[in-house]
Design a protein around this nucleic acid. Structure first.
Length: 699
DNA sequence: GTAGGGTTAG
């Protein structure tokens, strides 16, 4: 009799267990439903006898983002001295890692060890993942874990090994990761993807693509969407359109584009490779789009200088019902910066408010940056001052220092640099780029040298980009030899930025011998970059070496390189109007040309002579005047004068540097026509007013 | 009875 009842009891229990198991696995569960099930399991006493159901509750809490509820249940078990086995510890550690609570996961693991519970092959993948993500966990933590799992004889478990590979890669020990990978007896798709991703994240795209090719050809393993996402990202780093197409083709045959993540990766890849048309096509063909898809295609357009197209896409995005997020706002603000349009920037700012998108510090910093880049330094400064001194982060200071620097207000930039230190904010590598280039723009050589020396005091590494700032600063100040010495003695090999700065200085200083040295290095490093050929031919032209100019032109032609066209943009009635020389499609060209003729007459009557030295063609002097008079920036300014009143400000954005004749002309024009003229060129801002320029002719 | 690899941005 007693035997039967016990049997019945067991039967009942197992029926109840499977009933609850089914309930707990329902996809429709929410937090309150799980709490209900949890409490009825406690009252029925089932929870205490079923580790399986306990695990299910923990997993559910974790999935719903409530690892704390899971932990209190877990703690109860421990205090009831029911001694949960490794299985439940693993489940709880997993709950933490799945919610990104890396340090909690590691703390629990350490408690597990102290409680004398033995970790197993299921434990280590979670623990290693947490080691790789938790910034407070040093390299030793993972190495300790590695040693420990070897002692436990788990070093040849597929899952543990894959976790080790990704952990080594995360902390920069890629070679050790590769050793683990090479030592594996079998590798599945996930292991290969791990290694491919490891190379991609270490910014070694070639190695990543090699592994991808090897996996497919030698091992015959088919990629899935996760693999393709990593490979697409590697191709994006490489920026090679051909590879992009082959990855795209691969994604097409595997049906990976039906996956939103896969599609997003392809769109982003094309954007980074500079092929916006393909990015747009891949985007249009996606079956399903999320906010990441929109951000990817938008930033592709902005990064490739198609900011206007980005704005029409942004309108489409809103119509489609996809709600922009703070990242979308950042992308659109950089589009405003590119166009130099404060009006569009204000629209984006209004959009944020209307849609209750929280304007956090990151966005406030981005707004400051946008206003400064659109020429409205006063608004930028006002916003910077509105952020409480305690609230400002290092980016706030960096953005404002860079803004003052590009507007030529070097002393104020240096002042902010000192103030940030007084406020206890530590300058970082970006601060020094901003402050050094601020010194460079303002010709503050001694101050710049002091800042460069400060870097060691703040233990900020002097990187190649900082050397480029120094070379620019010294070279443009006429200290070409000192600049060249720095190039020769710098600790790492100079890159195109450094040689480019030197070449530019040679043009300003008219030194064609040193210019050749810089240019030859540039032609080796960046043979397909048209800007450097143009710059060197400018150096030759300034010394009237027309033969050499001709040779460079032939070289460019044979490589199929084109000199980028100069475009100047100005805002008119909320639209951006672009001016180019010989642009027959511009509806405003007639009035602009006509006005320019009038301006030329007016200037001549004031005794102005065109500065022919900056026309770099071998042509007759009178033709030079003609070329000079119709530069894109002059057309834009003439148009600005027609459409504005005396006493107002005209703002023009140019993609290339302003020429010296336009610079002298604008000083006079600002006086004759009583306009403030703000010109943003490829390098900095010039504020012309009452006959002089804010740069004091140092540029 | 439990596991592993990931996308946008700067």
């Amino acid at each position: 009799m007693r035997l039967i009842s016990l049997k019945n009891h067991k039967l009942l229990t197992s029926t109840a267990e499977s009933h609850y198991d089914r309930l707990l696995k329902s996809p429709a569960n929410n937090h309150s439903r799980i709490k209900q099930i949890h409490s009825s399991l406690v009252t029925s006493g089932l929870l205490q006898i079923s580790p399986h159901l306990t695990a299910q509750i923990i997993i559910n809490y974790s999935k719903l983002g409530h690892p704390r509820s899971a932990r209190s249940l877990f703690d109860e078990l421990v205090s009831n001295s029911s001694k949960p086995g490794s299985f439940l510890w693993n489940t709880m550690i997993r709950a933490y890692t799945n919610n990104g609570q890396w340090s909690d996961a590691l703390a629990l693991y350490s408690l597990m060890r102290r409680s004398g519970v033995w970790p197993n092959n299921y434990t280590y993948p979670f623990v290693l993942k947490a080691c790789g993500h938790d910034p407070s966990a040093g390299i030793w933590s993972g190495k300790t874990v590695h040693g420990e799992l070897i002692r436990n004889g788990l070093e040849s478990d597929l899952y543990v090994e894959a976790a080790l590979v990704i952990w080594y890669a995360k902390c920069g020990e890629l070679n050790d990761g590769r050793k683990v990978f090479d030592g594996m007896t079998s590798r599945d798709l996930v292991c290969w993807t791990t290694m491919i991703t490891a190379y991609e994240q270490a910014e070694l795209p070639r190695e990543s693509l090699m592994m991808f090719g090897f996996m497919q050809q030698q091992q015959g393993i088919l990629a899935d969407s996760v693999t393709v996402v990593s490979v697409a990202s590697a191709v994006g780093q490489l920026g090679n359109v051909k590879s992009a197409r082959s990855v795209h083709a691969h994604a097409l045959c595997c049906g990976i584009l039906e996956d939103v993540c896969g599609g997003n990766a392809i769109v982003a890849m094309y954007g980074k490779c500079g092929d916006v048309e393909s990015a747009r096509m891949a985007f249009d063909r996606m079956e399903e789009r999320d906010i990441i898809s929109w951000n990817a295609v938008l930033s592709g357009f902005v990064q490739n200088g198609q900011a206007r197209e980005a704005f029409s896409l942004f309108e489409l995005m809103k119509e489609s019902g996809c709600r922009p997020n703070p990242l979308t706002a950042l992308i659109m603000l950089s589009a405003c910066s590119f166009l130099g349009s404060c009006q569009l920037g204000m629209k984006i700012q209004g959009f944020l408010v209307d849609n209750k998108i929280t304007v956090d510090l990151t966005l406030r910093n981005a707004l400051i940056d946008m206003y400064a880049k659109c020429g409205d330094l006063e608004t930028a400064m006002g916003m910077f001052n509105d952020i409480g001194v305690r609230e400002r982060d290092v980016t706030s200071w960096n953005v404002m220092i860079a803004a003052l620097g590009t507007h030529g207000r070097g002393k104020e930039a240096l002042d902010l640099y000192l103030r940030m230190q007084e406020e206890g904010v530590r300058p970082n590598h970006i601060t020094f780029v901003s402050v050094l280039s601020a010194c460079s723009h303002a010709g503050l050589i001694d101050e710049g040298k002091n800042c460069f020396a400060d870097m060691q005091r703040f233990s900020v590494k002097q990187e190649v980009k900082h050397y480029a700032c120094m070379v620019d600063m010294l070279g443009r100040a006429g200290l070409l030899n000192e600049a060249f010495d720095l190039v020769r003695t710098m600790p790492s090999p100079p890159n195109d930025g450094v040689w480019g700065a030197l070449l530019l200085a040679c043009r300003v200083q008219g030194n064609s011998e040193l210019g050749e040295v810089a240019a030859n290095n540039l032609f080796l490093l960046e043979p397909e970059h048209p800007g450097y050929y143009v710059l060197m031919s400018n150096v030759y032209a300034a010394s009237r070496k027309w033969h050499e100019v001709g040779n460079l032109r032939t070289e460019m032609k044979s490589r199929g390189l084109m000199k980028p066209a100069a475009v100047s943009m100005i805002e008119y009635r909320g639209e951006i109007v672009g001016f180019q020389t010989a642009d027959w499609l511009n509806p405003f060209r007639h009035e602009a040309y006509k006005k320019l003729e009038g301006i030329a007459v007016e200037m001549k009557s004031r005794g102005y002579f065109p500065d022919r030295s900056c026309v770099l063609h071998d042509v007759e002097e009178e033709d030079k005047d003609h070329i000079l008079n119709y530069h894109s920036e002059k057309l834009a300014v003439a148009f600005g004068i027609i459409k504005s009143e005396a006493g107002s400000t005209i703002t023009v954005m140019k993609n290339l540097r302003i020429c010296c004749d336009c610079h002298s002309a604008f000083k006079l024009i600002s006086d004759i026509y009583r306009r403030r003229i703000v010109v943003r060129d490829g390098n900095r801002f010039h504020h012309f007013e009452a006959g002089s320029c804010s740069c004091n002719d140092y540029w």
